[in-house]
Design a binder for these strands. Structure first.
Lengths: 247, 247
DNA sequence: CGACCTTTTGATATTTATCAAGTAGCGTGG
DNA sequence: CCACGCTACTTGATAAATATCAAAAGGTCG
């Protein structure tokens, strides 16, 4: 089965991302495009993979948003990452066979499933792609480190602003920002679970960011009104996202 | 230059770790053993690599301890990871060319430096080793996620206990635990910077763990007196360390 | 329209940080 | 071997940040 559906090019976000990760040859692109895909749609709030599962395939997020998370102690949730189109949120399961966290849709999401053996075969035949995928998981790790800094050492206001800056750059990187506006489907409760804060506190902080003319949120879209201001408040430097292939 | 010094087998911790990561062939082992190494000793508190550096080599920690860290906002420090012998704390710099964090020795440390081109050449010639190294960086990521959970959603007492459990298993994995006792060189200030806590608070928590008969600390060694108790208090399940190659 | 989820607000409680100061341990040099 | 100095540890008092509890208001979707 070829990588084609009614939209014509479902893998576009992934290809865009791979190209941003580093130089890819025509043959590499062709190999990715000819992956046998199983497309699948999920409703919001669906667990695609569960902690302790031993998945036999990995997924590529084509549209929508999902997150990785763990349940801690007496039921508290920690969200480890947010994922946007083009991401491969459980790529690590190719080499770490048991899931140490869950994967959950936050919106309606379309996903392409690729069997692990196919994935291994791909990186074996195309070592260059293997390095790019490795690099992608390393960037994942870099983002985890930055989140640790936020949660461990930043105040609530800084944390929230920092997260918004990160999402903004990542969306822009895959071409989903227009007029300083990005898709924004997160609830304040989800932000809290990602930032180690309570819903109530997130609410109060977001309010001040709006009041101070930094952002505005409407109908699931977020507009950055004052980017320099937001990055300053958020103690944000985007280097950790490694968005250019030489960094 | 062969991988030999006065101790006879400096790479032993790394080899032990690679074998624990998954099956390696004789040829793979030989390739690692014949890496051209530059051995180097550092005093405690030395920055091996700085944030924003563009290193041209990666290091293998042979003895001692080091940590990755970032300086956040107005000078607060967040430690992202601790590293023990056998670890390659900046392996990621092979593919992420600019450091997004620093690397600091916590004790006297012996390190082997391997140039990036040598590393790339190694994984090209030995794809199996490439996958193991990739796997190792994925486990790194898994530990980051778990630390996020600790910092974001666990109380101070749980956090401290959890960290001690993790270090215990990791030391045991490289053969450095005897009689439930592991090397322990961390200061309470370093623990605080890793866990997102103040020194004072770490101190109070450690005191209670000692008082409750869970651990004892003496002359830079930590003994786990009540492992089931410590894991329970620390909300600790070791799966995220992926210490067996099928997990 | 109604049910449900998310956002918002107020009041109070808890955890953890900060500040300040004293104590103990350890390495170094005389 | 001991004295000194530095660092890490310890303790108490107070302050700040954030959580929790409770409830109302606003949106959204079937």
């Amino acid at each position: 089965m070829a990588a084609v559906d009614e939209t014509g090019q479902p893998l576009a976000p992934l290809l865009r991302k791979l190209i941003a990760l580093g130089p890819v040859s025509q043959a590499d692109v062709a190999a990715v495009e000819s992956l046998p895909l199983m497309l699948r749609d999920y409703p919001p709030g669906q667990e695609i993979v569960r902690e302790r599962d031993r998945p036999t395939q990995s997924c590529i997020l084509l549209s929508g948003m999902c997150c990785r998370f763990k349940i801690v102690g007496e039921g508290a949730r920690q969200i480890n990452s947010f994922h946007i189109p083009g991401d491969m949120p459980d790529l690590q399961s190719v080499l770490l066979h048991q899931m140490d966290h869950g994967l959950l849709t936050l919106t309606r999401a379309r996903v392409a499933l690729v069997p692990h053996p196919t994935m291994l075969h791909l990186v074996e035949r195309h070592p260059r792609l293997g390095l790019l995928l490795w690099r992608d998981t390393l960037i994942d790790g870099s983002i985890f480190r930055e989140w640790m800094c936020s949660i461990g050492r930043r105040t609530a206001r800084v944390r929230v602003a920092h997260l918004l800056c990160e999402l903004f750059l990542r969306y822009r990187n895959v071409g989903l920002v227009e007029d300083m506006t990005m898709p924004f489907h997160l609830t304040q409760s989800q932000m809290g679970d990602a930032l180690g804060l309570s819903v109530v506190h997130v609410n109060r902080v977001v309010k001040t960011l709006r009041r101070d003319g930094l952002i505005s949120i409407a109908s699931r879209r977020l507009t950055v009104i004052d980017w320099p201001g937001l990055t300053k408040i958020g103690d944000f430097e985007g280097g950790y996202l490694h968005l250019t292939s030489n960094s």
